[in-house]
Lab assay of single mutants.
Amino acid sequence: HAATELTPEQAAALKPYDRIVITGRFNAIGDAVSAVSRRADEEGAASFYVVDTSEFGNSGNWRVVADVYKA
């Protein structure tokens, strides 16, 4: 099962156990969220919340930071 994305309210009520950072070329924010979901799932997380997204220069590469939560 894939890790689910939390709302800001849900994330605020929970304590993350880790923070992950992924970088890559994403065509849309949805693609980045899917990549975070896969990584969170690999780490055994039940859910995640994207904290920050930023573009690296003009290369089209993105850096996505997310907190991950157990259950």
Rank of each mutant, 00 (worst) to 15 (best):
V21C: 11
G57W: 08
R63G: 03
A11L: 03
S47A: 14
A45K: 01
D31Q: 07
V50A: 00
D67M: 10
A2E: 10
L6I: 05
V50K: 00
I22G: 00
Y49V: 09
L14R: 11
T4I: 14
D67Q: 05
T4S: 09
G44L: 04
N61F: 15
A45F: 14
P16D: 02
A45L: 05
F56P: 07
G60N: 06
P8G: 11
V68M: 13
G57I: 06
A12S: 10
Y69H: 02
G44M: 05
D18T: 11
G24L: 06
T7F: 06
D18F: 10
I20F: 05
D41G: 15
D41E: 14
F26H: 01
A2L: 11
A66W: 03
I20C: 03
A71G: 11
Y49H: 08
N58R: 09
A2W: 12
F26M: 03
E5V: 06
E55V: 11
R25A: 10
Y49N: 03
S34G: 09
E43D: 12
K15L: 11
V65Q: 03
V21L: 04
Y69P: 01
L6W: 02
T4P: 03
D52L: 13
P16Q: 03
K15T: 13
A3Q: 02
A11K: 04
G24S: 02
R25T: 09
E9C: 13
N58D: 14
S37A: 15
G57E: 10
L14K: 09
E55P: 11
F26N: 01
E43H: 14
S34F: 07
D31W: 09
V36D: 02
V50C: 05
S37C: 09
D31A: 07
D31P: 03
S47D: 04
F56D: 14
I22M: 05
T53G: 06
R38I: 11
S47R: 05
V21Q: 05
D52W: 13
S37T: 07
T53K: 09
A2T: 13
G24Y: 02
A40V: 06
N27G: 11
A46V: 12
Y17G: 02
G44F: 04
R25M: 11
E5K: 08
F48M: 01
I22T: 01
L14C: 12
Y17S: 05
P8Y: 14
H1D: 06
H1C: 14
A11S: 05
A28S: 15
A66S: 02
A40L: 05
E9Y: 07
R25D: 05
W62A: 03
D18H: 11
L14Y: 07
K15P: 05
S59C: 08
P16M: 03
N61S: 10
I29G: 05
R63V: 13
A35Y: 05
N27I: 10
D41C: 15
Y49W: 07
A32K: 03
T7K: 07
F48A: 00
D18K: 15
V51G: 01
R38V: 09
R25K: 13
Y69V: 03
A35G: 03
H1L: 07
V50M: 07
I29E: 07
S34P: 04
R63T: 13
W62N: 03
N61K: 10
A45W: 14
R39V: 10
K70G: 10
N61Y: 15
V51M: 02
E5S: 08
D41P: 02
V65N: 01
F26L: 03
T23P: 00
R38P: 00
G44R: 04
P16A: 07
F48L: 00
A12W: 06
A2F: 14
R25V: 11
P8L: 12
S54T: 14
G24E: 02
V21R: 01
V65I: 13
D41M: 15
S34D: 14
A71Q: 13
T7A: 07
P8R: 14
N58C: 11
R39M: 11
K70P: 07
W62Q: 04
S37F: 04
K15F: 09
S47T: 06
A13D: 10
V64C: 05
D67I: 08
R39Q: 08
A32L: 12
A35K: 05
E43Q: 12
R63H: 08
F26P: 00
E55H: 10
T4Y: 14
A46N: 11
Y17D: 03
A32Y: 06
A13T: 13
A28D: 15
T23N: 07
S54C: 15
G30Q: 14
G60M: 05
W62L: 07
A40H: 01
D41S: 15
N58Y: 09
A46Y: 11
L14A: 07
R19C: 05
I29Q: 08
G60Y: 03
A11I: 03
E42Y: 10
N27W: 10
G24N: 01
A28Y: 09
L14H: 08
V33A: 05
A71R: 08
L14V: 06
E5P: 08
F48G: 00
G60E: 08
G60Q: 06
D52Y: 14
I20M: 05
S47L: 08
R38A: 09
A2V: 11
V68W: 05
A13I: 13
